[in-house]
């Protein structure tokens, strides 16, 4: 995956990790998201890309790589759906 196609955070989203959980503020929408531990790991390391994220998660959480890939993809879709990722990236 080239750098251009890596998922990118929407610059309109302010965020901060508090005790291991990321709190996201969608500035224009006025909506708030609180991510769980795994979601926070993915959010904080988006620049690694889905494949490396899935491998790392599989290793850390003792799940299969395909399962981790599915979880990462589903979470990315959720982030896209909420507008937390910048448009035009996947």
């Amino acid at each position: 995956m080239s750098e251009e196609t890596l998922p990118k955070r929407n610059p309109d989203v302010s965020w901060r990790t508090i005790e291991g959980q990321a709190v996201l503020i969608h500035n224009r929408l006025g909506e708030i998201q609180v991510l769980n531990d795994l979601g926070t790991y993915i959010w904080e390391h988006l620049e690694l890309g889905p494949e490396i994220l899935a491998r790392n998660i599989a290793q850390e959480h003792e799940v299969s790589v395909p399962d981790a890939q599915r979880d990462v993809e589903e979470f990315m879709q959720a982030l896209r759906g909420s507008g937390a990722l910048a448009d035009g990236t996947d």
Partner: peptide, 12 residues
Amino acid sequence: LARAAAVGMLLS
């Protein structure tokens, strides 16, 4: 409430 949840609820 976990602190992050509390922060999120207050912000909202």
